[in-house]
Structure formats: structure tokens, C-alpha cells
């Protein structure tokens, strides 16, 4: 990482400035059709990626005793629905799912929105201290956050927010990662001429954001939304410290599974599966949005 690369990218690829607007005509960055080899590689990757999740489902369909045996089960058993039911009841998943949706939803919206705004400012607007502030933003990521949960809890307790959902929403509502990500994306993807053209016609900054920045940022916003949602949904260290089982998120609730001296692994796995399913739905929703060439429609309208 170098300062010069971070701060002066507008002039880095002059060719683009001339060509960029034409992409709206060409549509998305998609190039050629995939050949058979592509599918082979993707299938291999998909198998490796999916295996642990599939095995989670297999484990959730067995019983505790079978999971200790060798070789471990490699195909589904008969207990899936029974275990899912048990996990759902034991963990009080109804409240947990509701809370997690609010928490992860708020964090995702906040992160995507604020990161796009800040990323745009850092990428395309000129203001004093912009490069210093950007480096500062990146610098905040360099200190590991795990220990900060102790003073953070003390601080939340002072606010009388212990066990309330805002304790887990507010600290991650903005993201240095997202800001930096959006900045790097927009530097390349958002042609400066578009902004200037809007300026010439007297468009306010908000209008520029709405009609130029958001459409251009859409694929990145979708990816950031996806990554943020998963991160927020699966985050557990701080939520476990900050919340209790009376008002839990999914990860907190899952931590109440497997009680007793013999934790039932099949029920724990069923809980893990339950906790992951909403993510897959979110994936399908966001995944469709990772498409270039959206500006075509937005700009015309």
C-alpha cells in the first residue's frame, strides 16, 4: 500500500476517461460464454466450498452417538426434522431470528449507505485532509478488535444499554473496510465526467449521489451488502458479551444449545444449519444484484 497509489488514482489510467462512458452502450462487463473447462473448475470449487455445509446437514440428520463413530456418516439419516425441531425450541429461534434480522439488516443498510457516501467522497471529491483521513480510516482496521469488547461493554453499561440490541448494532453500523472498499471500487468504476456533467447542470451533491454514484456503485454495494450481512449475522464474540438469552441474536441463541454434560452434537449441528439457512436466502437476494451495466436504465430515467 502506498500513499500515492491511494490518493492519486484519478490520473492513473487516462485511457479509461475517454472510453468509460461507452460502456453503457456495451452493457455489462461480461465477456464471453464459458467453456466446458470453466464449468469443471467451478464444480470442483463448489464441491469443496459446499462440503462442510452439506456435512452439517448430514450430521444434523443423525444422532449424537452415531457422530462419534468411525467412519463418520457420509449420508443422511432419519433425524433431520426431529433435530431441527429440538434446536428451534431449545434455542428459542423465533426471537433470535427476528432480532438477528433487525441487527444484521440495520448494520448492512448502515454500512452500505455510509460506506458508499464516504467512499465516493474519498474517491471523487476534493477536500482538505482527504488523504490523511483516508489513511486514518484504513489505520483503524489495524488494531485487532477482540480485546476492545471489555471497555466497550463498560461504555455500554454506562449508557444503560446492556442487553439491548443497539449495543450490537451501533458499533458496527459503519465500517472502515466498507469505506475503503467503496473508495477503491468507485475510483475505477465511476467516470469523473459523469459527475462533472451533472455539476455543470447545477445538480446538488445529494442528487449526484442518487443519480450517478448509486447506479454506478450497484455491483459493489451488493457485494458489500452480502459480506456485511454474513459478517453481522455470524458475529458472535461481541453479541455474546453484550446480550443475554432473554434478548438474543441467532449466534447467541445457538450458544445455549448442547447443554448438559453430554452436548448433543446432532442438535448443535441442526442449530448451525438453522442459523445458516437465512443467509442462503439473503445470498440469493443480493447475488442477483451483482450485475454491471445497470447505469443504462438509471441514467435514462
Amino acid at each position: 500500500m502506498t500513499t500515492s497509489e491511494l490518493t492519486a488514482p484519478q490520473d492513473a489510467v487516462p485511457v479509461r476517461e475517454v472510453r468509460a462512458p461507452r460502456r453503457r452502450v456495451m452493457g455489462a462487463g461480461k465477456q464471453m460464454h464459458a467453456g466446458p473447462l470453466t464449468y469443471v473448475v467451478l464444480v470442483v470449487f463448489a464441491l469443496v466450498s459446499l462440503a462442510p455445509l452439506v456435512w452439517t446437514a448430514i450430521a444434523a440428520s443423525r444422532n449424537n452417538q452415531r457422530l462419534a463413530e468411525t467412519p463418520p456418516p457420509l449420508w443422511f439419516g432419519a433425524n433431520l426434522f426431529k433435530n431441527l425441531q429440538t434446536a428451534w425450541d431449545q434455542a428459542g429461534m423465533g426471537t433470535a431470528m427476528f432480532n438477528s434480522t433487525i441487527v444484521a439488516g440495520s448494520i448492512t443498510i448502515g454500512t452500505v449507505l455510509f460506506s458508499t457516501l464516504a467512499g465516493f467522497a474519498f474517491a471523487k471529491l476534493k477536500f482538505r485532509f482527504s488523504s490523511t483521513l483516508l489513511l486514518l480510516t484504513i489505520g483503524t482496521m489495524m488494531i485487532p478488535p477482540q480485546l476492545a469488547v471489555v471497555p466497550l461493554y463498560l461504555w455500554m453499561a454506562d449508557l444503560h444499554w446492556s442487553n439491548h440490541l443497539q449495543t450490537v448494532i451501533l458499533p458496527t453500523l459503519v465500517s472502515a473496510f466498507g469505506t475503503f472498499f467503496m473508495r477503491q471500487y468507485l475510483v475505477q468504476a465511476l467516470p469523473t465526467e459523469l459527475i462533472e456533467a451533472a455539476r455543470v447542470d447545477g445538480a446538488s451533491s445529494l442528487r449526484v449521489v442518487w443519480h450517478v454514484v448509486f447506479p454506478a456503485a450497484r455491483p459493489a454495494m451488493a457485494v458489500l451488502g452480502l459480506l456485511t450481512f454474513v459478517m453481522a449475522w455470524n458475529d458472535f464474540l461481541w453479541p455474546i458479551i453484550a446480550l443475554n438469552q432473554q434478548n438474543p441474536t441467532v449466534q447467541v441463541a445457538l450458544n445455549s444449545l448442547g447443554t448438559g454434560y453430554i452436548p448433543d452434537q446432532s442438535v448443535i449441528m441442526a442449530g448451525a444449519l438453522l442459523g445458516t439457512l437465512p443467509l442462503l436466502i439473503a445470498f440469493l437476494l443480493f447475488g442477483k444484484q451483482i450485475v454491471g451495466g445497470i447505469m443504462q436504465g438509471a441514467v435514462k430515467g
Binding site: I102, H164, N244, N247
Partner: peptide, 14 residues
Amino acid sequence: GVLAGCSSDSDGTS
């Protein structure tokens, strides 16, 4: 989000 956080006053703190 904020409302839910606040409204859980009653059952949030043990």
C-alpha cells in the same frame, strides 16, 4: 432497529 432496541427495555435487562 433502534425502536426494538429501546422497547426491549422491559425484557432486555434481567
